[in-house]
């Protein structure tokens, strides 16, 4: 269970980045998908399929990676 806790702590760091640096992320990656791991942006692309492929090609451990769409400033994402 130690592994699960570590994974969640990692996710919390990435979530914190989204919450507290959203304006910065919009400036840098607006209208793109970003991949986050342990509180850092590790890849980005306008197309989610291309982003996934680049992550696979890099051979990264993906267990803690989350993908987030960052809209342009002034655009809100609803589900």
């Amino acid at each position: 269970m130690e592994m699960e806790l570590q994974l969640i702590k990692n996710l919390e760091k990435s979530n914190k980045l989204i919450n507290h640096k959203y304006a910065d992320l919009q400036r840098r990656y607006g209208d793109q998908f970003i991949a986050l791991d342990n509180g850092k942006v590790i890849a980005h692309d306008q197309k989610v399929e291309a982003l996934r492929k680049s992550l696979e090609d890099k051979g990264l451990a993906l267990a803690t990676v989350i993908i987030e769409y960052i809209p342009k400033k002034g655009v809100m994402v609803l589900y």
């Binding site: 592994m3 699960e4 994974l7 969640i8 990692n10 996710l11 990435s14 979530n15 993906l62 267990a63 803690t64 990676v65 989350i66 589900y79």
Partner: peptide, 10 residues
């Protein structure tokens, strides 16, 4: 093995 997921609560 477990993997991480960030759910939107909806």
């Amino acid at each position: 093995p477990p993997v991480g997921v960030a759910f939107i609560v909806d």
